[in-house]
């Protein structure tokens, strides 16, 4: 475990030199929040209205949180790196190293996004407050709960990206797959809460990764309850277990295939 912590720490330190880029990148994030602020203002005729249980303030806070999770992932670059590693055969160099490739990828990617996450989270809180004018009902417990669930969400998302990247053992180019996944996450999982969708597909969405990657943490921030917290955290832990296992299996099979074919 110590070596992964070390990999994580080195990545955090090296990401410090990109702080300026991160700050500039926030602009894009704020822009989307700003546009949705206008959009919801138009749709809600009155600030006391609720749409499927959400007030306008809830809606803006919801997207502020989900959009952090979506922006911070940095998945395109990460997925491409894994694909390139697999395609070029570089991945074979990792086989003899005394660490798990999956563990290495996960810890280095988490290290890369940590600073970004912190900066985005702080600016989201400030800007959200400026737009909405008030916080949802929050307590120390709900804040901690939200943050824990956000961290777990980022881990799950990273594992999904790793899994997609590793699919390139089997197909020419896995980048389009990642792209489909990220689009799904953005359009279905980030912009609106699940409750806004037609009831028929809500059940499906609650089983999909959206529930644990974007919806869960944002829901906790907007409308916290211990019961919801436990529900979401347990779902997240199950997801981590499954996706980690899947990555392991795919990696093992993939490497064996690579060895047979000689890269």
């Amino acid at each position: 475990m110590r070596k992964y912590l070390y990999i994580y720490k080195s990545e955090v330190i090296s990401s410090l030199s990109y702080v300026l880029n991160i700050v500039i990148g926030i602009f894009s994030y704020l822009l989307l929040i700003f546009i949705f602020f206008n959009l919801w203002n138009y749709i809600y005729s009155d600030s006391s209205d609720t749409i499927n249980g959400y007030t306008i303030g809830d809606m803006i806070w919801y997207i502020s949180i989900t959009e952090i999770l979506w922006s911070v992932a940095g998945g395109r670059k990460f997925c491409r790196k894994i694909c390139d590693d697999v395609r070029s055969g570089n991945i074979t160099y990792n086989i003899n190293k005394p660490y798990s490739y999956i563990g290495y990828l996960l810890s280095s990617h988490l290290g890369e996004v940590t600073i970004k996450f912190i900066i985005y989270f702080i600016s989201a809180i400030i800007v959200g407050f400026i737009f909405v004018g008030s916080f949802p009902e929050i307590t120390a417990l709900s804040i901690i709960g939200t943050i824990i669930s956000m961290i777990l969400a980022i881990i799950i998302n990273s594992l999904f990206i790793i899994f997609i990247g590793l699919v390139s053992f089997y197909i020419e180019d896995a980048n389009p797959l990642y792209w489909l996944y990220s689009k799904f996450l953005l359009v279905v999982g980030t912009l609106f809460p699940i409750e806004i969708f037609p009831e028929g597909i809500q059940g499906f969405l609650k089983l999909s990764p959206i529930y644990v990657i974007t919806y869960g943490p944002a829901k906790l921030f907007v409308d916290f309850s211990v019961e919801k917290f436990l529900n979401i955290i347990i779902a997240q832990i199950i997801y981590i277990g499954i996706s980690f296992g899947l990555c392991k299996i795919l990696y093992k099979k993939g490497v064996r295939k690579l060895n047979v074919n000689g890269g």
Binding site: L39, I43, I51, K183, F184, V187, V188, L191, F192, I196, F197, P198
Partner: peptide, 13 residues
């Protein structure tokens, strides 16, 4: 894919 977004929004108003 963004058509989904608008279908949802137009279902509200």
């Amino acid at each position: 894919s963004f058509i989904i977004q608008w279908i949802i929004l137009y279902s509200l108003k």
